[in-house]
């Protein structure tokens, strides 16, 4: 199982804070997971997850979309950070 989390305006756009997704063999990378979410969710999800500058985190570290997934991973999608 994969835990998928959304933050800030992406969370609001999707009206979804967290999902549990079965880790299938076809979900090799963070990018595969993202595309799968869009395929299942439709245009609304495409608009939210493919907007420019979306940040991807794997197990709470920022990664590129080609980073490989394993069962039990936590993946997060969020906009650029604005702390301080």
């Amino acid at each position: 199982m994969l835990t998928v989390r959304f933050f800030s305006l992406i969370r609001e756009a999707l009206d979804c804070e967290e999902l549990q997704v079965e880790h299938q063999e076809t979900l090799c990378t963070v990018g595969d997971l993202k595309q799968s979410l869009v395929d299942n969710g439709g245009d609304h999800w495409r608009e939210a997850l493919y907007q420019p500058n979306v940040v991807h985190a794997l197990n709470q570290r920022v990664v590129n979309t080609d980073h490989e997934l394993k069962d039990g991973d936590e993946v997060a999608f969020f906009p650029p950070m604005t702390g301080g």
Partner: peptide, 14 residues
């Protein structure tokens, strides 16, 4: 620390 925190620490302001 401040300059890096602003873009690397996962906070979002509304």
């Amino acid at each position: 620390i401040m300059d890096t925190l602003k873009t690397k620490a996962p906070f979002w302001k509304k």
